[in-house]
């Protein structure tokens, strides 16, 4: 049996209690929600909290409601409930679709929004058993000081592989946090940090309490996931597109975000001059935008599939995601 290491276990019932426990135990403690990321990592000794603070009994994190011109989603909602929510399917289809594409039905019954947004970054040299990592020599992300992917690099390049992360950035979502110093919200894009070890711009003591997505008239969204198998597998590329269209169905505002190619989701810059004022029928403009995304994408050799192949599919999938914004 592949067993969990020993830890003390707390099941607070309120947000305040959960945050106070984390504050009291500091770096030795971690939150757990569905456990589908943390427990495998603990079994492989990639993460070794001595104190585990479960959110299972914090019912305040289960809310789903229309609020402030958008939708508020509690951090503890399961991926299954997000994927099947009719308001999300209608108003934020890229989000509902991304949730439905994660892992397997069984894992979606367990895995939650908060855990997905805070997913540990992934790397072929890190997501391995303890004996495997020890045999090769530990890497910088845990227990070692070298990076096996880019040995001359001072930075860890483990990949942010959450399917929801690029989507919430494209949708202009805001992450809701509560910490010892109080509550705040952060633009989803700013929540992620381009470093495989310090991958979240969040104080260690802060709890993600939820996500807010704006409802914007004339806006549409799409998400395409590229993975080895249709079930189980993490994305090796995720393309999230969001645009607001004017009355003539011309693009008035646009955000395109690439997931699973770097330690943080990547917003593709400089697309406005190519796409604003254009319609989706302008295939030349779409192709030019895909070219910009392709240039930006620099996947490294640390996930499923050859990194050259992962780069080569950026263009066609970006085109598909943009065309997926068409009215249905």
């Amino acid at each position: 049996m592949l067993r969990l290491p020993e830890f003390s276990y707390f099941q607070p019932t309120t947000i305040a209690e959960a945050v106070a426990l984390k504050d009291a135990h500091g770096d030795r403690a971690m939150f757990v929600s569905g456990g589908t990321d943390l427990y495998p990592n603990m079994k492989r000794r990639q993460q070794e909290p001595r104190v585990v603070i479960s959110l299972a009994k914090v019912d305040q994190l289960n809310a789903i409601e229309m609020r402030d011109g958008g939708i508020h989603l509690g951090a503890k909602l399961t991926l299954t409930s997000l994927a099947s929510d009719q308001r999300l399917q209608a108003g934020w289809p890229a989000f509902a679709h991304a949730a439905s594409s994660i892992a397997t039905p069984l894992l979606r019954n367990m895995g939650t929004l908060g855990g997905n947004l805070c997913l540990d970054t992934r790397c072929n040299y890190y997501d391995q058993s303890y004996p495997w990592r020890k045999a090769l020599g530990f890497c910088m992300k845990k227990d070692g000081d070298t990076c096996w992917v880019a040995p001359s690099s001072a930075k860890c390049w483990a990949v942010q592989s959450s399917d929801l992360a690029p989507v919430v950035a494209a949708l202009g979502g805001r992450i809701e946090l509560v910490g010892p110093k109080g509550a705040r919200t952060l633009a989803a894009e700013a929540f992620y940090n381009d470093d495989g070890i310090r991958y979240l711009n969040k104080e260690p003591g802060e709890l993600v309490t939820g996500l807010w997505l704006p409802e914007i008239a004339g806006a549409r969204s799409s998400y395409i996931k590229v993975a080895q198998r249709g079930s189980f597998d993490f994305p090796v590329l995720g393309v999230a597109a969001w645009a607001r269209f004017d009355q003539q169905q011309k693009i008035a505002e646009l955000r395109l975000v690439l997931g699973a190619i770097a330690p943080a989701p990547r917003l593709v810059p400089d697309l406005d001059k190519l796409l604003i004022g254009r319609s989706l029928d302008d295939r030349q403009a779409i192709a030019a935008a895909a070219e910009v995304a392709w240039r930006l994408a620099r996947p490294l050799d640390n996930t499923d599939q050859a990194f050259s192949w992962r780069k080569s599919v950026v263009k066609p999938y970006v085109e598909r995601a943009l065309l997926g914004l068409a009215a249905r």
Partner: peptide, 9 residues
């Protein structure tokens, strides 16, 4: 609800 007993405490 079908869930994975290897990842539930």
């Amino acid at each position: 609800s079908p869930q994975l007993s290897c990842l539930v405490l």
